[in-house]
Computed example of a mutant assay.
Amino acid sequence: MNICVFLSAADLDERYTRPAREFAELIGKGGHTLVWGGSESGLMKVVADGVQEAGGRLIGVSVEFLRSKARANADEMVIAKDLAERKALLLARSDAVVIMVGGTGTLDEATEILELKKHGHHTKPVVLLNAAGFYDGLKQQFQRMEDEGFLPLPLTELVFFAEDGAGAMAYLEESAGIR
């Protein structure tokens, strides 16, 4: 499975890096491929290192203005012209999407992926990996959107909230018919 992971390029503390390393190891040991923003910094580097160390492949999709921060030893690196093209390429190259902790860029990616799914432009499983309760507030907001009629389909069909990497991988593999 090609698993797209949206996440931060910032250096973060152990409560976020530990779950990221654990999920990365599951990607690699499962024989899956990481499709990610291609950065060699922060949490992006942590996940890429973990996937490679566990035997997985890396497909990076960087963007022209971040070319200098792209990982040199990825199995494949694509340079998009802008962020919109990058998001489209990340989705096109993946079978599933996992959203880890991140800032405004990660939130932008997450909402676009969910909006495209809501409108039937893809049916790929989407997981929010809620490390250290990072997405508790967003989960509450999504629940309110569903309760008040803003979502045309049940929240459970739009996104799965996983509390840890094992739960995220189990959901993805079940969705792909691997288990």
Score class of each variant (00 low, 15 high):
Asn2Pro: 00
Cys4Val: 00
Phe6Met: 03
Phe6Arg: 00
Phe6Gly: 02
Leu7Pro: 01
Leu7Tyr: 04
Ala9Lys: 05
Ala9Asp: 12
Ala10His: 14
Ala10Met: 14
Asp11Trp: 14
Asp11Arg: 14
Asp13Asn: 11
Asp13His: 12
Glu14Ala: 15
Arg15Lys: 10
Arg18His: 13
Pro19Glu: 07
Ala20Ile: 03
Arg21Trp: 09
Glu22Val: 10
Glu22Phe: 12
Glu22Thr: 10
Phe23Lys: 00
Glu25Trp: 10
Leu26Ser: 07
Leu26Ile: 04
Leu26Met: 07
Gly28Gln: 05
Gly28Lys: 03
Lys29Gln: 09
His32Leu: 04
Thr33Val: 07
Val35Ala: 04
Trp36Gly: 05
Gly37Val: 01
Gly37Gln: 06
Gly37Ile: 09
Gly37Pro: 03
Glu40Arg: 15
Glu40Trp: 14
Ser41Val: 15
Leu43Val: 09
Met44Phe: 13
Val46Gln: 03
Val46Ser: 08
Asp49Arg: 14
Asp49Gln: 14
Gly50Gln: 10
Val51Gln: 06
Glu53His: 15
Glu53Phe: 15
Glu53Ala: 15
Gly56His: 02
Gly56Phe: 04
Gly56Lys: 03
Leu58Asp: 06
Ile59Tyr: 01
Gly60Val: 08
Ser62Ile: 12
Ser62Gly: 15
Phe65Ile: 13
Leu66Cys: 10
Arg67Asn: 15
Ser68His: 15
Ala70Val: 13
Arg71Glu: 06
Ala72Leu: 14
Asn73Pro: 08
Ala74Ser: 11
Ala74Gly: 09
Ile79Val: 12
Ile79Gln: 08
Ile79Leu: 02
Ala80Thr: 09
Asp82Gly: 08
Asp82Val: 07
Asp82Cys: 01
Asp82Leu: 01
Leu83Gly: 07
Leu83Tyr: 15
Leu83Arg: 07
Ala84Val: 12
Ala84His: 15
Glu85Phe: 09
Glu85Gly: 13
Glu85Asp: 14
Leu89Gly: 05
Leu89Cys: 04
Leu89His: 06
Arg93Thr: 03
Arg93Ala: 05
Arg93Asn: 12
Asp95Glu: 08
Val97Trp: 11
Val98Trp: 04
Met100Tyr: 09
Gly102Pro: 05
Gly103Asp: 13
Gly103His: 13
Leu107Tyr: 14
Asp108Ile: 08
Glu109Thr: 06
Glu109Met: 11
Glu112Leu: 05
Glu112Tyr: 09
Ile113Arg: 03
Leu116Arg: 08
Leu116Gln: 07
Lys117Gly: 00
Lys118Pro: 00
His119Pro: 00
His119Ile: 00
Gly120Arg: 02
Gly120Asp: 02
His122Phe: 02
Thr123Trp: 11
Val127Gln: 12
Leu128Ile: 11
Leu129Trp: 02
Leu129Ile: 01
Ala131Ile: 01
Gly137Thr: 12
Leu138Thr: 05
Lys139Gly: 10
Gln140Ile: 10
Gln141Arg: 14
Gln143Met: 10
Gln143Ser: 11
Met145Ser: 10
Glu146Gln: 03
Glu146Gly: 00
Asp147Phe: 07
Pro152Asp: 09
Pro154Trp: 06
Leu155Val: 03
Thr156Cys: 11
Leu158Arg: 01
Val159Cys: 02
Phe161Ser: 00
Phe161Trp: 06
Ala162Pro: 04
Glu163Pro: 03
Glu163Ala: 04
Glu163Ile: 00
Gly165Ser: 04
Ala166Asp: 15
Gly167Cys: 05
Gly167Arg: 09
Gly167Trp: 05
Ala168Gly: 15
Met169Cys: 06
Met169Pro: 02
Ala170Phe: 07
Tyr171Pro: 00
Leu172Met: 13
Glu174Ala: 11
Gly177Ala: 00
Ile178Glu: 13
